[in-house]
Amino acid sequence: MKTVEEIKAAIETAVPGASIEIVPNASPSGQLSLLLAPNHAVAVAEFLRDDAELALDFLSNATGIDWPDKEITEKVKVMRQVLKTVDGAEKMVEETVDETRKHVQPGYLEVVYHLFSIEKKHGPVVIRMRTTNRTDQVQLPSLTPVWRSAEFQEREIFDLFGIVFTGHPDLRRLLMWDGFKDHPMRRDYVEPDDFEYEPTAHDEVLARSKAHQAAGQEGAGVGL
């Protein structure tokens, strides 16, 4: 089978304008992936499926990943003007100072598809797509029109991660019920505390349930 670099080159010749990035993987599995830009994703997917040499006709696995905002603290050396007493006189001197800088790396949601070829019996080719952020711009193109096997899996990702697939024929919640609000697989998901408690050895559940009832939130116990 072609290497990831060759696949990248093949896509770039076949789909003009498609920008592709290779995502490294330090694991001994050596499964590198291709990061697709959402605007060309469907064209690229169709190429991967229909290309005679690749013939990736089988989408095996589709899943989401949540990468929340990450606060990165790093120490940097900075040159600064400092007031100092040199030889009895105050002077401005340049000096390197350690400074801790914090910046927030914005989070995003990611989808990963694992493709195989039933015709050529090779794989996996891993493709990924990323949303702009985790809150309002969470649309990604659906690959269900290309591979039908994404239908339920994308519904599951929509349900559990909250990624909205444009072009999906039937985007409803799959596992949670229709009136459910949040997306349970996100890292910052807060578990509800209005369940019917069952005392456990640890009794955290009991404490949370009691706190919920004390706050006067009635209707506790009847699972929404």
Binding site: A26, S27, P28, S29, Q31, S60, N61, H114, P124, V126
Partner: peptide, 10 residues
């Protein structure tokens, strides 16, 4: 504790 990375096994 595996090193950072990813794998798909089937």
């Amino acid at each position: 504790r595996p090193k950072a990375g990813e794998a798909y096994g089937r």
